[in-house]
């Protein structure tokens, strides 16, 4: 257990330390000469018009909501994919192979039903025009 997950923890610590160090070192070597113009948002040299904190297209929210649905679908598919050979076998696998005559369509049907349910939703979303950018 420790030999599988400890390296990740070490690496995260190491990379975060590096990232913070880079920010700190470049902060310490800087010679700030701020001017009022330099501190304004860059808009190609034009005088700034208004604020960037405005409303933006609802399409971006839509994509995020749809993403959650389909990403969860993907996440459900990963264990199914990894265990597909066991699921399509009526009994336990013998040395990774299904004994003759024990093949079942359980794994395939289960996922077909799951995909079909989501496909209905997908077609609805498509027909509603949620995937349409103009």
């Amino acid at each position: 257990m420790e030999r599988t997950y400890l390296p990740i923890l070490l690496l995260v610590g190491f990379v975060v330390t590096n990232a913070v160090a880079i920010i700190l070192i470049s902060h310490l070597t800087l010679r700030p000469r701020p001017t009022a113009e330099k501190q304004t948002p860059y808009e190609s040299g034009m005088p700034v018009l208004g604020d960037a904190r405005e409303r933006f297209s609802v399409k971006f929210y839509m994509v995020a909501v749809l993403f959650i649905i389909f990403d969860i679908e993907t996440v459900f598919m990963i264990p199914w994919g990894a265990h597909f050979r066991q699921l399509s076998c009526g009994t336990d696998l013998v040395a990774g192979v299904c004994p003759t005559g024990q093949l079942s369509l359980f794994g395939l049907w289960e996922m077909l039903v799951f995909i079909a349910i989501l496909l209905v939703g997908f077609i609805y979303v498509w027909k509603k025009g949620a995937l349409q950018w103009d």
């Binding site: 990403d71 996440v75 990894a82 597909f84």
Partner: peptide, 20 residues
Amino acid sequence: ISYEIAMGMSTIPVLLLAGN
């Protein structure tokens, strides 16, 4: 996030073959 779905799904066939 849009392409992450396609990316995740494109690897499911690999898992089907590898079983792991």
